[in-house]
Design a protein around this nucleic acid. Sequence first.
DNA 1: ACCTGAACACCGTTCAAGT
DNA 2: ACCTGAACACCGTTCAAGT
Lengths: 246, 246
Amino acid sequence: MKKTALAPKPKTAGRPTGGGALSKRLIAEAALAHIDEFGLGAFSMREIAAKLGVYPATVHWHVSTREALLAEVAATVMAEVTPPTELLWQEWIAELFRRCRATVRRHPNVAQLLGAQLVSNGSLQTELVEGVLEALTEAGFEGQSLLEAYNCVIAAMLGFLTMEFSPLPADNTQAWAEELRERVHTIRPLDHPVLARNLPLLANNAFIVRWDNGTTVPLDSSFERHIQITVDGLEAFARRVKGSQK
Amino acid sequence: MKKTALAPKPKTAGRPTGGGALSKRLIAEAALAHIDEFGLGAFSMREIAAKLGVYPATVHWHVSTREALLAEVAATVMAEVTPPTELLWQEWIAELFRRCRATVRRHPNVAQLLGAQLVSNGSLQTELVEGVLEALTEAGFEGQSLLEAYNCVIAAMLGFLTMEFSPLPADNTQAWAEELRERVHTIRPLDHPVLARNLPLLANNAFIVRWDNGTTVPLDSSFERHIQITVDGLEAFARRVKGSQK
DNA sequence: ACCTGAACACCGTTCAAGT
DNA sequence: ACCTGAACACCGTTCAAGT
C-alpha cells in the first residue's frame, strides 16, 4: 500500500535529531494535499499520520484536534487568495470574487470547509477583511451600513462557492445521477411549466436540478452574473444611503 | 435442526407484528430531532438506532447509507419552507428568503447540509424551483439569463444562511472565543485602519471576525440588506437584458 | 419484508513511556 | 520538546440468521 523511505527508519525514537521534524504547517499542507487528491471523505487523522510516517498520537501532539486541523487547512487555502489593489471599488470587489473562485477551484474539496469553518486565523485573512472594508468605505458606506454591506459581500462570495463546489452524493454518483436525470424528465409540464420549458438549459446547470458539481460542470457565467448583481445591488444600496443622508 | 430452547430469548426477533414499524420518514424525523437537540457532531447511525430502540443494521435496511439519511434530513427541513404566492416578483423573492431563513432558524444545526447536500429530493423542492423560475420570468428573464438569475437567487439565499449558521469550533468555544477576541483587539490601527476604527461595530457581528454563529447572534439586518441588494441587483440585470434586446 | 445479533475494519483521542 | 506503542470507546457497514 505504501512504500517505505529509502533511508532506514529510526524505528524506536523519542525526540528527533533535527529538533522538530514536524510542525503544524507541515501537517496542514500534507492534509491539504491528501484532501485535494482523495476528497474530504477520505480524510482521517490516521491517514495523514501514515502519510507522514508517524503515529497518530504524534499528529495530535501538534494539532490537538481533528477539527482544528481542518480549520488550519481552510486557512491555508484562503491564504492563497491575493486581494487586488488600486482599483475602483466595483472592480476591486469583482476581482476579489474572481481570485477567490480561482483559489477554490484549485482546492474544490475544501469548499465545504470555507463556509463552515471560516474564522479569523492568520493575518492574511485580516488583510482580506480590511480590503473589503476599504472598498466599501470608498463606496460611501460607514457604520451600520458598512457592516451590512460587508456581510453581504462575504456571504455572496463564499456562499456561492460553497454551493458551486459542494459535494454531491459520494460514490454511487453514477446510479444517483441517472435517477435524478430520470426524475427531472418526468416533470409534468402542467404542474411546472417554466421548469419543463427550460429543462434543456437548466438540467445539470442549475442548483437543485444538477447532478454534477462545479468541479465537472463549472458555473462560470452564473458566477460572473453573480458578481454583477452583487455590485449593482451595492451601488443601489449606496444611493439609498446617500439619499437618506442629505 | 432447531436450536434447543435452553437459552431464553430476551427480546423479540424477526418481522414485527404491525407490518413495518419503521420507515424512512420516521428515521429521518428521529434523526432531525436528534440533530436539533445535540448538533450534527453528535449524530451517528448507532445513536439514532438506539433512540429508535432497534439495531444499527435495522436502520441500514431502510436508509442504505449515512449520507443518504442526512440528505433525507435536509430534504425534510427544506420541505418546511412554504413558498409565497401572488406577489410582485420582487416581494415574492423577498418573502421566500425570509421564510427560508425562518425555517433554517428552527433547525440551525442542519444549515451546513443545505449548501452541501442540496439536491432535488421531493416534489416540494421542485415546487420551490418552479416558484423562483416563475418570479424571474415575470421579471423578464428567459433562456440563459433565466438560468443565471436563478443560480444567483439560490446561491444568495442558501449561501448566506449556510454561513450565518455554520458551526464555529465545537466544544472549547469558551477558550477559542477568548482567543479570537484577544487577537481582534490587537489589530494595529496603522495596518488595518478601517477595521480598527469600526471594531466595536464589527466584532462578533461580521463574518470572519465573529465568535458566535447565527444561533446566538443572528444577523437580522444584514440578511434584510442582503435581500434588498439581491433584488436591486436583479432589477439592474433585468434592465440590462431589456436594453440589449431592443 | 423486516429485524436480530454479531462481526469487521475502521476511527479520534488519551496516556504512559521513551529520548 | 517531541515521539512511540498501545489502549479505549466509539463508528459505518455487512452478513447470516431468524420470523
